[in-house]
Write a protein that binds this DNA or RNA. Structure first.
Lengths: 116, 116
DNA sequence: CTCGTTTTTCACAAAATTTTTACAATCTTC
DNA sequence: GAAGATTGTAAAAATTTTGTGAAAAACGAG
């Protein structure tokens, strides 16, 4: 399991508190949504295969047929706002990739909002 | 399946991350395209018979008649840019050969992961 | 148990990839 | 250079994969 913070220009993830901020506003994620996002973010910049996601987030083996991953991806994208579509890319036939925005400026109020 | 990196003067293949670069820019390959290129590259410099490619990439036995290999070769050549034609040679009546270019410079961009 | 929330499934739409088709071009051998 | 076989290629068809709204199922606090 991941700990600490992830942050890029538009997005902050607090692994310890299951909380997320996007562009100045708090985003409420459910447990599975957060776990999925965390899995993607912890490999930010590279493709995470569907099989890995299904295994690590759901514990599903590769033979299980389900659309729940796709549905969760969609809800994540929506909750991430206008950047969601661009930030979570689909690698057709392979998996998904969380694309960090260049730079990693962290507005101070993010840090203040997140107690250690 | 192959692992690790292949690189020559103007081409980098990352088997683990399913990514390819040509002359400092990222090339988007589909699954089959990547598998085919990987098969050729892993025997770089020597002819790979059609039958081998059809077997290892498609699982086709030698009795199956299809043109899909040729079509994929063509798409690969195009995506490899201006060197594509020269780098993927056809051995008439036998198969194809990926011709590595001398040297093995590693484009810096590769190390910085994936461009937007 | 009941209600509200979260997660999963379903059914179909949309998008991307892969294969086939049909014909043109090229090569090999005679 | 002609014939037959092999490869190149554009475009259409088929298949596979992903997106999505809505409904069902599972979950959890009270």
């Amino acid at each position: 399991m991941n700990t600490g913070l992830y942050r890029d220009t538009h997005c902050v993830l607090d692994f310890d508190h299951h909380a997320a901020w996007v562009d100045d506003h708090h985003v409420q994620l459910t447990r599975k949504e957060f776990e999925l996002l965390a899995e993607l973010v912890s490999s930010a910049g590279e493709i995470v295969p569907r099989d890995s996601l299904l295994l690590n987030v759901w514990g599903y083996g590769p033979q299980i047929r389900t659309r729940t991953l796709d549905v969760h991806i969609r809800r994540l994208r929506r909750k991430l706002g206008i950047y969601g579509e661009r930030q979570i890319e689909t690698a057709f036939g392979i998996g998904y990739r969380f694309q960090p925005r260049p730079g990693s400026a962290t507005p101070l109020h993010y840090l203040e909002a997140v107690p250690a």
